Amino acid sequence: MDRKALIERRLQVANRAEKEKAIVERLLPFLKGKQTAGYMPIRGEANVFGPWIDFVPKVVSATRMVFLPPVHFKKGAFGVLEPESEAVVLSAQIDVIVVPMVAFDGKYRIGYGKGYYDRYLKTFEGLKIGVAFDDQEVYDYQPSLYDVPMDVIVTESRTIE
């Protein structure tokens, strides 16, 4: 997969604000009353950040990320806004994790290729929801041994369960 081309395609999504609103509307029923981990969008990722997100990721090593409450942000690894807090949240405290994607095929997400989410999700026991625009769907991805499928994929037009 040419991730660079997929990211460029994601950056070209038309009517972005309208589509992000539709994604959030489809996403919120899964989050109601749940402790939810999300992300700070970069490079054209669907922006679903809001008061329903209780925790966001922070990269703490070359292979590990943790989740923290979303307060007092600064630019961290890869230019992503990360919380400055050191109050790490245990994965058992998270009910739902909302995961960004470069692309998706079925319930498999394609990320940036560093494996942070796959390592985290490997032992995560809560609900895993990938969010993307319809335009990010591909049909020729062969998942690797390390890829962790999502439980749900939410786009602006559908929910894949």
Rank of each mutant, 00 (worst) to 15 (best):
V138Q: 11
P83R: 05
I153H: 07
I23G: 00
V98Y: 12
G126C: 06
L6V: 09
I94M: 03
R16G: 02
L68Q: 04
K34T: 04
G113R: 12
A62R: 15
E156L: 05
H72V: 01
R64M: 02
M101Q: 14
K21Y: 12
G33D: 06
I160R: 07
V99N: 08
L121Y: 12
I94G: 01
G38E: 03
V66D: 01
V96E: 05
E18M: 10
R109T: 05
G50I: 13
D118C: 09
G44S: 09
N15R: 14
V60I: 15
V24W: 14
V24G: 00
L127C: 09
V13W: 14
F104W: 12
Q93Y: 07
P100A: 03
L81N: 05
E18L: 14
G113N: 06
K75I: 08
E82G: 09
K21N: 12
M65S: 04
L81R: 13
R158H: 11
E18N: 01
Y39A: 00
V99T: 12
E84Y: 10
V56N: 03
K32L: 02
P41M: 09
E18S: 10
A92L: 04
G44Q: 12
V154M: 08
R3C: 04
E161C: 08
D95K: 01
T36I: 03
R26W: 06
M40G: 00
A22L: 15
N47M: 05
V152W: 06
A46E: 11
V96R: 06
T36M: 02
K75W: 09
L121N: 11
F104D: 08
K19Y: 11
W52A: 00
E45T: 09
